[in-house]
Write a protein that binds this DNA or RNA. Structure first.
Length: 190
DNA sequence: GCCTGGATTATC
DNA sequence: ATAATCCAGGCA
């Protein structure tokens, strides 16, 4: 078996709208558990009214201005950690939210406890991603958390839809910035 | 300091 | 439809 190696920093050093579709099919590796990404969302910077960096540099968003390829993990509703990958270009404060992934048979991961439990909160729970993982370098193979390229050759068939849960963001609520693998049952919603 | 609300989920 | 649960961000 080839050692699974992380995507390089340059992969992330571009707009989230480019990175988000490219991450579908890639594998999240967290402390020995592996999951194949099937759903992502792009948050495209300060002008995006659904993006946390709309507030500019703050204690929370500082990580988004750091190196592309850094993990941005935050707590939503006081309950669920959300996993993001910081994108660029440079310090453009873009990020991709990893919303759903599927169990990979024989890849060292365990099946999800509840196959019906989907969505970004359940993903972090299943993988063991927590707030302590905020600011981890996703490009470091020694990192407890990183993302590896697609195992399969073919690019997944993608569906493009508005993002989930951003109704407050006015015109940005309808932008087609969510990318799902077509027909995959692990996607949080059709 | 105080107040509001959220990139969600499970349950009624 | 709504509670759970807590912190970031805005404003005083």
């Amino acid at each position: 078996m080839q050692p699974v190696h992380p995507l390089p920093r340059k992969f992330y050093d571009r707009n989230a709208v480019q990175v988000a579709p490219a991450l579908v099919g890639c594998r999240v590796v967290c402390r020995g558990r592996v999951a194949r990404i099937v759903e992502t969302e792009a948050y495209v910077g300060e002008h995006d009214l659904a993006c946390h960096s709309r507030a500019g540099r703050t204690a929370r968003t500082e990580v988004m201005y750091g190196d592309p390829g850094t993990a941005y993990v935050y707590l939503i509703y006081g309950i669920h950690p959300m996993l993001n990958a910081v994108c660029g270009p440079g310090a453009a404060a873009n990020a991709v939210l990893i919303r759903a992934a599927e169990f990979v048979p024989g890849a060292g991961s365990e099946p999800w406890l509840h196959p019906s439990a989907r969505g970004p909160g359940n993903l972090t729970k299943a993988l063991g991603v927590g707030l302590r993982d905020n600011r981890l370098d996703l490009c470091d193979p020694a990192s407890a958390l990183f993302i590896a390229p697609r195992a399969e050759r073919a690019k997944p068939k993608l569906l493009r839809t508005p993002r989930i849960g951003v109704d407050y963001s006015g015109p940005w609520a309808t932008e087609l910035l969510r990318f799902c693998e077509a027909g995959n049952p692990a996607v949080s919603r059709p």
